[in-house]
Design a protein around this nucleic acid. Structure first.
Lengths: 189, 189
DNA sequence: TAAACTATACGACAGTTTGTAAATTAAATA
DNA sequence: TATTTAATTTACAAACTGTCGTATAGTTTA
């Protein structure tokens, strides 16, 4: 009784696919409800039955993106990293992105849409913030020469930036190698 | 004979100010030529005498932003940093941003507009790329465990990210302090 | 299978935005 | 002051937006 009408799923999927497709062809500002509906082979009015406008569509899509990522990273969320496999959650994140490269390239790299990057940055910042906190406790309140929030800004932006550049350059490194490099760059204290 | 008609300067300044003002009130997508002209107290048609459309206006504005920054950073461009005052160019950059906080907050932080961030990232990447190259030569081809391009992605994204977060939090640190912190975070090898 | 439900398609509508054109007014320069 | 050029004004067609009913098609339930 909790099932969703397959027509709804179909229409929304068509719209999302069409959106990513159009992003490969034009800037976001040029994507109108007209074009979107035409590409998705649905009626224009139908769009309004599902989303208020195009920003609303992007909002929902970015929300789903985060849900996917959170599902991919249970280790990170449960917050029990060991020093040894520090790169493990990073590898699974990169593999997920690699597997959905078309989507992530469109919204994070090629036609950068702020809301997607912002949400991801926020998530990474939260996770990294906990991580730094734990490191602090382990280190016994040492290394106080660096302000915590600045270090978190630094680290999260670096991670997003590396991922975006990696996508832009069509993923020239394997997730495993990139994760390793990232950990080397990060853990130099 | 090379002077520009003051009416042109006036109109363009009015448009740019109005644009930043509107960015403080709504998302970019909601800014129409109508609203912009109204806010700038110029006729709508006049807008088209200066810019093709709103993306074109943003393009020109980001171009000018980069020109400003390049003018602020002659030391960086002439590429003769010493290890001692590594943070000097960074301080002048941060001071410039602090001095034009309203503008930079609007286009980089609050209503992030990709083109501005992208251009800045590209500039920083180029500068950092040269910098790393020089460091490499000094270090005598050592430290080859880290891929150069990945290190550059990492560093430039971290810098932009720190600046953006600094703006978002209403610049809680002085440019000098932030620059110092950044250098500590960067030069841990 | 038939009936009830509901998502989608369709045509239409007013209101807004866009981009361009022509003629006029206002300001800057020589 | 005369000339040049920018800005204004009015007008227009085309496109986009958001929202009506109403009809059609697909889905679920009895």
């Amino acid at each position: 009784m909790n099932r969703v009408d397959p027509r709804i799923l179909r229409t929304r999927q068509l719209l999302k696919d069409a959106f990513v497709e159009l992003l490969g062809e034009m800037d976001v500002e040029k994507i109108t409800v007209n074009r979107l509906a035409e590409r998705a082979t649905i009626n224009r009015v139908t769009f309004y039955l599902h989303y208020r406008d195009i920003p609303d569509l992007m909002d929902k899509m970015s929300e789903e993106m985060l849900e996917d990522i959170k599902r991919i990273l249970p280790e990170v969320l449960s917050a029990r990293w060991t020093v040894r496999d520090e790169e493990a959650p990073l590898v699974s994140l990169l593999e997920h992105i690699e597997g959905n490269a078309k989507f992530y390239k469109a919204v994070l790299a090629d036609r950068r849409i702020p809301i997607f990057t912002e949400r991801l940055l926020k998530l990474i910042t939260e996770l990294l913030s906990e991580h730094v906190e734990r490191k602090r406790i382990e280190a016994g309140a040492a290394n106080h020469q660096v302000q915590k929030d600045i270090a978190v800004w630094y680290g999260s932006s670096a991670l997003i930036g590396v991922i975006v550049s990696w996508l832009r350059n069509d993923m020239p490194y394997t997730p495993h190698y990139l994760a390793k490099q990232f950990v080397i760059l990060t853990s130099r204290y």
